[in-house]
């Protein structure tokens, strides 16, 4: 899994330090120069139609594909084979 290996490979970041002793003076006018209208989130993104909520989870699972509608506790042999197939496919997907 590449995502877990990545941070280990990355070499130790050099510790960044400000040299406060160099008596450098930042120009406050340029530091605080105004951003105007560009620093705002576009108004179209102020409202979300879904209120950023998940849709209702129906919890669809292999069980619904493998069982019969009107006799839910009854399992056929062919369905056991199919169950294995579903497990393999899902474990990859």
């Amino acid at each position: 899994n590449s995502s877990s290996a990545e941070p280990r490979k990355r070499k130790e970041k050099e510790v960044f330090q400000i040299d406060f002793m160099d008596a450098d003076n930042l120009d406050e006018d340029s530091l605080f120069s105004q951003g105007g209208a560009t620093i705002y989130l576009p108004k179209t993104q102020w409202k979300s139609t879904t209120r950023n909520l998940l849709p209702d989870d129906i919890h669809f699972s292999s069980k619904q594909l493998l069982s019969l509608f009107i006799k839910p506790n009854y399992i056929q042999m062919a369905q056991i084979e199919m169950a294995n197939m579903l497990i393999w496919t899902k474990s990859f997907g």
Binding site: P55, D56, D57, I58, F60, S61, S62, Q64, L65, M85, L86, W88, T89, K90, F92, G93
Partner: peptide
């Protein structure tokens, strides 16, 4: 139609990637 959408989003990859 969430039941339909969620059933298909489960079914379609399984269908295609199994056989």
């Amino acid at each position: 139609n969430l039941p339909l959408r969620q059933a298909l989003s489960y079914f379609l990859p399984v269908y295609c990637h199994s056989v």
